[in-house]
């Protein structure tokens, strides 16, 4: 019998070798994008004000914010991943969301910030606050 031979049973340590991902980047970017639309008053309002052309910029900004905040990618990496310039990435990430908030709330008439960037940053913060 093995036990009589005094064979030792090798003890096993718990080793996690594969990542457990609850929510991938694409899903989170989509959530941020939807929250952007909510911040702007919903899809219908965007349509009524003929602002549907904002959607591609909002999608792009949502991805930029998520890649920066969640994956800690550098501006260059984000630019390469999304096929945009590093300057666009910088503009999105440097957008003053409070200024943009005032603009969409009608408090100020003009804003020099990257509007989609500011909205995406606000949306990301809202999502994180809720989770």
């Amino acid at each position: 019998m093995d036990e009589e031979k005094g064979e030792e049973k090798e003890e096993k340590m718990k080793v996690i070798k594969e990542p457990i991902i609850k929510e991938n980047v694409d899903e989170l970017a989509e959530k941020v994008f939807h929250e952007c639309i909510n911040i702007l008053g919903g899809l219908k309002k965007l349509m009524e004000y003929r602002n549907l052309t904002w959607l591609p910029s909002l999608a792009e900004a949502s991805y930029v914010v998520v890649l920066k905040e969640e994956l800690m990618k550098t501006n260059r990496e984000i630019a390469e991943m999304l096929g945009i310039t590093e300057q666009t990435v910088r503009n999105i990430l440097q957008a003053d969301e409070e200024e943009v908030k005032k603009y969409i709330g009608g408090e100020i008439e003009k804003v020099d910030e990257h509007k989609a960037g500011g909205i995406a940053k606000l949306a990301y913060k809202n999502i994180k606050r809720k989770s």
Binding site: P19, E23, L71
Partner: peptide, 10 residues
């Protein structure tokens, strides 16, 4: 190593 979110989720 490349995806801090994946590491933190795990």
């Amino acid at each position: 190593r490349e995806n801090p979110k994946a590491l933190m989720d795990t």
